[in-house]
Amino acid sequence: MKLFYALITGLVFGIGISLSGMMDPAKVLNFFDLAGTWDPSLAFVMGGALIVTFVGYRLVWRRDAPLFEARFQIPTGTAIDKNLVGGSALFGIGWGIAGFCPGAAIPALGTGRWEVALFLIAVTAGFYLRRLLAPMQTAGAAT
């Protein structure tokens, strides 16, 4: 039941991504191209998502526990460190180069486009690269 619930949850999120335009790199890159072919559509994606999560999270948190787990696992870190700022800066650079982000690319895999698979393999390589760098860095704090 928990796994079926997770599947449906992923499907709802993925349909949202599909409708929103987030899985279209042409649209994503245009959102950032203020000096060129600017398309502000994706601001409406974030607006819609934040309205639902801002209200929805607070309603959910009135419960003592989630439906299928013993407790909520919410990140509690507040440290503004080099990893957070540098990592986020890098993430934006990569997003601006490729036009895909992970949350959009996973559902986009379902369109069967090979570019999406290539991107996700590269992202996985990036995860491994971060592991290689790990001894030099403090362990990744939570969101």
Binding site: G86, G87, G92, G96, C101, P102, A122, A125, L129
Partner: peptide, 14 residues
């Protein structure tokens, strides 16, 4: 290139 930087940056930045 973008994908590797996304993976590295997103995992560093959590």
């Amino acid at each position: 290139i973008g994908g590797v930087i996304v993976g590295l940056g997103a995992s560093l930045g959590s």
